[in-house]
Design a binder for these strands. Structure first.
Lengths: 217, 217
DNA sequence: TTGAAACTGTACCGCTCAGTTCGGTACTAT
DNA sequence: ATAGTACCGAACTGAGCGGTACAGTTTCAA
């Protein structure tokens, strides 16, 4: 909730690198939108939060929708980085999967992760491309990463996928990490998961997965 | 989208059985809310859709929020019935799980199922109890039912859950059915899944689950 | 036939909110 | 000094929408 803003270095077309004031506005908008959603947030709230005049907001962002898109895109971009750096190590597949599950749950169940999902799902009919942006910044790269790792693990003989492709197995694995807790906390915004609960869940998922596809050594 | 309305026979307190006109309004409200969400729907749209005067709407429902709650509750209620009638038959655990998975996906990925989820997730901060209602009408009874079946299947020796409780196994199973496709179609509202895709996914999930916990016979 | 209740249609109120306008200020570059 | 740029603050516009008021119409039971 209090971290900084990440901006796609030049996501679409030719966007200038965003001046300091624009960043101030964007950061305030992030906070307000994540807290109230698109419809619930007013430009006055954003302006006040940023400590900036109304004219300044509109000088940098043509309208509320564009500002909203900018927030969602930067937030998706900020989210998508973490999982990438996990390396494959032969014989350590359980530990690796566990690390992925923990990290992914951490992001998905964080206050901002849940708020982002809520916003995107709520407004996806008005902003169809944000749905794709979100999916391609979160679930998709995670699946790709897991697919990669599973492929290597299979090569190394650590797992045996049988009929399944690595892609399918990765989708099942990543999906089942997220599923239950994500829907639960999306629909119960007053509760927050403890670290222990998250770890318990990811252990459950990793155990189940390896019981299916792990080599019994 | 075109089906009828189900009303909890007396969900909270003392609600009269809802007269014909009230049902007309509720049905129209259902259609409009599912199509546009709470914020996007206007009472004029509902009134017009129902072919009813504005006064009539407010004669039966004190305000927009109450009407919205009524729609969501009736929709949750209508959704929650289907899975119940599946009986356990020894030796047929694969078929049973498959049937559950198919039915559940059918509901979750239907136009109205996705629209309902979108609405609830979008407005859960404004209507916290609707989140609980939704969860307890959809995911929860499904998990209970699966738990029951898994318990019986374990008794009958068709599966072997190891360290897992039936509850945990059921949550993993039901969660992994929903996960990937639900999030995908929530964020891609223009696409719709084919029957083949749904069946392929549920086969994948049942296979994975039984590979973990099924007895190799 | 009568009278209450439910309903219609429309005008209207009050408010919120996105976006505009404009006079004025501070800073920078030339 | 001058001109340009970025910003402030505050008033304003205009539209949309939830909800109300009210006069007239239909329905139906006694």
């Amino acid at each position: 909730m209090t971290d900084s803003i990440a901006v796609p270095s030049s996501a679409f077309g030719a966007e200038r690198p965003l001046g300091a004031k624009a960043m101030t506005v964007l950061k305030a908008a992030r906070k307000v939108f994540l807290a109230h959603g698109f419809a619930g947030a007013t430009t006055d709230m954003i302006q006040r939060e940023a400590g900036v005049s109304k004219s300044t907001v509109y000088a940098h962002f043509a309208n509320k929708e564009i500002l909203f898109s900018a927030v969602v895109q930067s937030e998706c971009f900020a989210t998508s980085i973490n999982i990438r750096n996990i390396q494959f190590v032969p014989g350590k597949i359980r530990e690796i999967l566990h690390e992925i599950a923990d990290n992914y749950l951490q992001i998905v169940l964080s206050k901002s992760g849940l708020a982002l999902a809520r916003m995107v799902i709520a407004e996806v009919e008005r902003f169809p491309n944000l749905g794709k942006t979100f999916y391609e910044a979160g679930p998709k790269p995670c699946v790709s990463q897991v697919k990669e790792l599973l492929f290597l693990a299979q090569q190394a003989g650590d797992i045996e996928l049988g009929e399944l492709t690595a892609e399918e197995a990765a989708r099942v694995f990543v999906g089942s990490i997220r599923s239950e807790p994500q829907l639960y906390y999306l629909t119960h915004p007053e509760e927050t998961p403890t670290k222990a609960q998250k770890q318990q869940w990811s252990k459950l998922i990793v155990d189940t997965f390896l019981r299916s596809y792990g080599k019994t050594d």
